[in-house]
């Protein structure tokens, strides 16, 4: 029996109703933020709306996008993964070294994926089966992955990658020559790759039975278990996915930089990854968040960085602003919960 009177009572004022609607659709916030940011920057920041710059932003999504997708899976299931950004380096240096030695792009890529996945598996086992705290587990794998990369390369960067590899993954398709610009503007492969991944994994998370089980596990592990969800397996799988995403990021970044180093993703970026996911609606308590929201959260942060760059804002001030944005979003989350 649908009780209309209760419904009406709860939506007494239009403002309150709007608030309820917004709380029910957490992906709205990042979408709205991104759109607002895009309009404001387009109007006020010179060169922001240039096709070249837009394509740059699009390409940059590829650097953190995969890690954000992985983080979303982990956080929806109720965990957190601090290790992914150093796992990128660990994967990259091994894969790149193999590539240099054998000239086989395929072997290198497979190795990068495998190393990324192995770290994910370690995290998954520790959290899901050994029942350790996700934050600290992934903190220690973060340290280990970084240490591994440094040890493996003796702190040297890996150069001399096959051209085919660099050309394939850092390419831009549909090059267009605009006006007098000597360099053609194209659509970066990295951006397309992350877009495809986001659509596919977003579909899996929001539409399939597996995705629903990820949400239910995060929403209430005990209820999910009694309802027949194999919660340990689900938790484990989200870390494995996050590990694979780190492997993919290793491929994309190695190709873009033309080298594999021990610090492919700087540590401040970890904050970007978490911030994008939290702005996208995820909560540390689990059961919330979406790939759509996360990607727009990432877009928002990327545009922010980009505009600061174009405006010549000091990167240090940018850090202050971004850190404050994250705190503000968390504050908003507290309000939303009330």
């Amino acid at each position: 029996m649908v009780d209309e009177s209760q419904f009406r009572a709860s939506g007494a004022s239009p403002g309150l109703k709007l608030w309820h609607w917004i709380s029910a659709n957490p992906a709205l916030l990042p979408v709205a933020l991104s759109v607002a940011m895009a309009i404001i920057f387009a109007l006020t920041v010179p060169k922001f709306a240039d096709l070249r710059n837009i394509m740059n932003i699009f390409g940059q999504l590829g650097f953190l996008g995969f890690l954000c997708i992985g983080m979303t899976y982990v956080m929806v299931a109720g965990g957190i993964d601090l290790s992914s950004y150093t796992v990128v380096s660990a994967s990259a240096v091994v894969g790149a070294t193999a590539m240099v030695a054998t000239d086989s792009t395929l072997l290198g890529c497979v190795l990068m994926l495998a190393i990324g996945c192995s770290f994910g598996i370690v995290n998954g086992i520790a959290v899901a089966y050994l029942r350790m705290i996700p934050f600290i587990v992934t903190l220690s794998t973060m340290v280990v992955a970084e240490g591994f990369a440094i040890w493996f390369t003796q702190a040297q960067s890996v150069y001399g990658l096959p051209d085919a590899f660099i050309d394939n993954f850092s390419a831009r398709i549909l090059p267009m020559t605009l006006g007098i610009s000597p360099r053609p503007v194209g659509i970066p492969v990295a951006g397309i790759a992350v877009l495809v991944a986001a659509l596919a994994l977003g579909f899996v998370l929001s539409r399939t039975i597996y995705g629903r089980r990820v949400y239910l596990t995060g929403a209430n592990e005990e209820t999910a278990r009694i309802s027949g969800v194999k919660v340990r397996r689900i938790e484990f799988s989200t870390y494995a996915i996050a590990g694979i995403m780190a492997g993919i990021t290793a491929i994309v970044l190695t190709a873009d930089l033309g080298t594999a180093t021990t610090a492919m993703v700087r540590d401040v970026r970890l904050m970007d990854i978490i911030a994008a996911t939290v702005i996208g609606g995820a909560s540390l308590k689990g059961g919330k968040g979406s790939i759509l929201g996360t990607m727009f959260g990432l877009l928002f942060l990327t545009m922010l960085s980009n505009a600061f760059n174009l405006l010549g804002v000091s990167p240090f001030i940018a850090m202050v602003i971004k850190g404050s944005v994250l705190v503000a979003v968390i504050g908003l989350d507290v309000l939303r919960a009330k």
Partner: peptide, 23 residues
Amino acid sequence: YLGMNSLLATLGLMIAYRGVALV
């Protein structure tokens, strides 16, 4: 007092404070 999650909030502040110092 505001009831924010300490892990996330201090992670954000870690970046912000470092930014302040770098400025």
